[in-house]
């Protein structure tokens, strides 16, 4: 739903009709609802306009048809403007222009070689210095695993990516690219965006950019590449698994690749959101068995399944209908800690 504000001025004819029959106003209300929109607030005003109406409609097209419908009454003149909540607007203002196109050379042989050669400086030395110790559980879950996968991890810190890369076996790590928020890592004011693409293997994802954002990763699965993505869509401050976005599910269902859940614990102490310098701490990474979404019919079910796979790894109670079914209603409250296929 999108918000609109409609300013209305009655014609002389309209004023007469309204004072003869005030109930007409409610009729317009019903008409708007019939067309799939909703009036959230309406005022009669003194001054330039007679009415100010706030409407929520599913799209510009839907609103246009409402406006057309109402104006056939011939009793009003109106002006309609789209609007946003102030919070969203402030967010938009703060956004810097950013790059949305991946550096496609990052999967070339020379780039892979450079990434491998630079890994110690870009990743390993930081992990060794600040993750004391880094414990990895569940490596055996990937012993049999070959080919492309979507690796999903919980996100609480910029340190997550180095830890995930260190925890994964070389088979996957050597051929993986990482979905990074374009507005953060590929902002135009940054001079070295290529550095991330080359040494971390990241590519820009335009958050909220829709299915178009999946083209690049989908093209890579065919060539045996894997993807690391954080389905929560941003860093969590609480340590609880946040609601998953649908992107990873859609990718997995379209490309028919399995999803490997990975739970990271302890990085909120090492480098939480909002802190720039890390301090050493105990970090645990737990790899779960690959999840296939072949039998899943809807994106919502698939997303819930992935979210619950992550919750199981984290020892948190599952969410949604599927999760409750799996556990039995009674067990939800007393969910076993540390469950899942990790250890």
């Amino acid at each position: 739903m999108q918000g609109y504000v409609v300013f209305t001025k009655l014609t002389a004819e309209g004023s007469k009709r309204l004072s003869d029959n005030p109930a007409r106003l409610q009729e317009v209300d019903r008409q708007v609802q019939r067309l799939g929109a909703r009036i959230t607030k309406q005022f009669a005003t003194i001054g330039e306009y007679d009415f100010v109406t706030f409407i929520e409609a599913p799209s510009n097209e839907a609103l246009a048809s409402i406006v057309a419908e109402v104006s056939t009454l011939g009793t009003i003149r109106q002006r309609t403007y789209p609007m946003f909540s102030l919070d969203r607007f402030t967010q938009l203002v703060k956004m810097q222009p950013y790059r949305t196109e991946p550096h496609r050379w990052q999967t070339d042989l020379w780039a892979r070689a450079a990434r491998r050669a630079g890994r110690y400086f870009a990743i390993t030395r930081h992990v060794r210095r600040y993750c004391k110790p880094l414990e990895v559980e569940g490596r055996e879950n990937l012993k049999e695993f070959r080919g492309a996968a979507i690796v999903i991890a919980n996100h609480s810190s910029h340190f997550d990516t180095p830890v995930v890369l260190s925890a994964l076996p070389e088979r996957i790590r050597g051929k993986i690219v990482i979905a990074a928020a374009a507005d953060k890592f590929y902002a135009s004011r940054r001079k070295r965006t290529w550095w991330y693409s080359l040494f971390m293997g990241t590519f820009p994802v335009h958050r909220g950019g829709g299915v178009k954002q999946l083209e690049y990763p989908l093209s890579l699965f065919k060539r045996g590449w894997s993807i690391l993505i954080y389905p929560e869509g941003g860093r969590s401050k609480t340590g609880q698994v946040q609601k998953f976005k649908a992107g990873p599910t859609i990718m997995a269902m379209q490309a028919k690749v399995p999803v490997i859940p990975l739970w990271i614990e302890g990085l909120r102490e090492v480098m939480p959101k909002g802190q720039r310098t890390p301090r050493p701490g105990h970090v645990r990474a737990r790899i779960g068995p690959p999840v296939w979404l072949n039998d899943v019919t809807s994106v919502a079910d698939g997303t819930e399944m992935l979210e619950n796979a992550m919750r199981a790894l984290a020892g948190q109670a599952p969410r949604g209908a599927l999760g409750r079914q799996a556990l039995g209603e009674a067990d939800v409250a007393a969910s076993p800690a540390g469950g899942g296929g990790g250890s």
Binding site: L25, Q42, F43, A44, T45, I46, G47, E48
Partner: peptide, 12 residues
């Protein structure tokens, strides 16, 4: 620009 307003129910 400020318009004095009243909720529509009150108006009807």
């Amino acid at each position: 620009t400020t318009l004095p307003a009243m909720p529509i129910d009150q108006f009807t």
